[in-house]
Design a binder for these strands. Structure first.
Ligand SMILES: NC(=O)c1ccc[n+]([C@@H]2O[C@H](COP(=O)([O-])OP(=O)(O)OC[C@H]3O[C@@H](n4cnc5c(N)ncnc54)[C@H](O)[C@@H]3O)[C@@H](O)[C@H]2O)c1
Ligand SMILES: NC(=O)c1ccc[n+]([C@@H]2O[C@H](COP(=O)([O-])OP(=O)(O)OC[C@H]3O[C@@H](n4cnc5c(N)ncnc54)[C@H](O)[C@@H]3O)[C@@H](O)[C@H]2O)c1
Lengths: 224, 224
DNA sequence: AGACGCTTGTGAACGTATGCACAAAGTTGC
DNA sequence: GCAACTTTGTGCATACGTTCACAAGCGTCT
């Protein structure tokens, strides 16, 4: 299955969940695509990788398709997650209810700062980074979330990997190397803002260019 | 300039900043690519869109290239940003120092909950959503960050756009429509975790398949 | 039963992105 | 001043992703 398709399955799943909550039983690719904000041909091609779950002339059965995608993504089981670095962002993530409802259970919180140890966040005690290996093994954790400062990110990832974690979501603005077989994704908020800034600048530039053009037109009108 | 290139420029900028802090004056595409975690040919092609700023046989001058990328992204000016929704995540974002150091100034915080009004977060008073238009215009805000619940996201974006914001970063797990000319990017943490879960599941599946294969080999060994 | 209308699933064309490989262009050493 | 070496910038082949367009399939209505 293409990586681009995998990245969209959660989107479809969410759209289907919304439809199910609104009591919709059947949906066409056109409607579902609109709900997910994609092109309908793309949606159909994506779904075709799961199998032929639609009915021609009718569409897709919402509950059934939802179950198929859930199974494909691997959300029939709950995944235990450890968050490393319980600062600003770590607190927000730990307190976020949206993960549990999507099949992810925050199983442990870890920080290196002794003053944070024992602090209770979202019903969990913050534990020391030295216990990481033990925690990962005891709780069967496969996914780690890194919310430490950038300079600690590589070290933390190394320790997560050594402890047996094979999927990492990194929030620190740092390039991290992981061995083959470990999946690393990064969420980079500054980069997102910078991409917006780039386009914003060009918009203003375009506006200015338009003004120049208008000025030229005006000049021509005066001269002509 | 290709969108994929734009998305990598911030990465290069960060790598260059790290190098500059370490006192490195010149860097080859090979070294810079390694720092940014990309292929060196890709890096050179990306940089070639900015112009011919390298010196053959030598590499790129760190400070100069950094300045060029900064200019290209549009970070020579500071961008004023408003955060809408000062809950878990909004607090973390407001308190995050990493934005200011990258050219983004959190200029205002807005929430709809009356009990939050006047609360001071990161040196700013939380103001009411009704003031949004006024705030955006007074402070010359071009970029909005949405950290409200999903059900409010479309409404908030509509109001941001109406107020004159033309770039939005959305953290709410909702599909939001914006008019042409407005840039919308989304950061979707649940989706990221779900993509990891998909691959994690396949890893386990692969492991099981391998075990089955080993079992078959074993059976063959016994039979043969 | 057959015709009609709707929607899926997919082949094919197109566009974008990546990475190789190398000529061109520079530096260094003698 | 020239040869040897290094590194950039880019043409080209390949891979990946998207979108169009339509035949095949299903339900419905007469
Ligand atoms: N806060 C945000 O909104 C935001 C936005 C974008 C990016 N980020 C990035 O996310 C990361 C966390 O940001 P933050 O604002 O929460 O920072 P923070 O300083 O508030 O928290 C970092 C936490 O990590 C802990 N820590 C440090 N080294 C550690 C180690 N080796 N092992 C375990 N824990 C360790 C610290 O004790 C601290 O509690 C940073 O890399 C930041 O750049 C944050
Ligand atoms: N907290 C996280 O780590 C996290 C992670 C992933 C996604 N998200 C998403 O980010 C968003 C915010 O998450 P949170 O945990 O901070 O939620 P939260 O409930 O703590 O905060 C939401 C805030 O938005 C405010 N709000 C509601 N409607 C508003 C409106 N119309 N105008 C202005 N403000 C309004 C609320 O008063 C509240 O203060 C949610 O959509 C959530 O799904 C959060």
């Amino acid at each position: 299955m293409p990586e681009a398709t995998v990245a969209r399955l959660p989107l479809y799943l969410r759209a289907l969940t919304n439809l199910a909550e609104r009591g919709v039983a059947t949906v066409s690719s056109e409607e579902l695509a609109a709900s997910a904000g994609v092109n309908s041909a793309k949606l159909r091609k994506d779904l075709s990788y799961l199998g032929s779950y639609g009915t021609r002339g009718v569409g897709y059965e919402v509950d059934f398709l939802r179950h198929q995608i859930t199974r494909e993504i691997g959300l029939t089981q709950d995944w235990a997650v450890v968050i490393v670095g319980i600062g600003n962002l770590g607190h927000a993530l730990a307190n976020y209810g949206g993960f549990a409802s999507r099949g992810f259970r925050i199983a442990a919180l870890v920080d290196a700062d002794p003053s944070r140890l024992g602090e209770e966040v979202a019903g969990l005690n913050v534990r020391h980074a030295d216990e990481l290996e033990q925690i990962v093994q005891d709780l069967g954790i496969a996914i780690g979330v890194v919310a430490t400062p950038a300079r600690a990110a590589q070290l933390v990832c190394d320790r997560l990997v050594a402890a047996g974690v094979t999927s990492i979501l990194n929030f620190a603005p740092a390039i991290v190397q992981v061995p083959e077989g470990v999946d690393l994704r990064k969420v980079d908020l500054s980069t997102e803002l910078q991409i917006l800034a780039y386009h914003e600048q060009r918009k203003n530039g375009a506006a200015l260019a338009l003004t120049a053009e208008q000025a030229a037109e005006l000049a021509e009108a005066v001269n002509g």
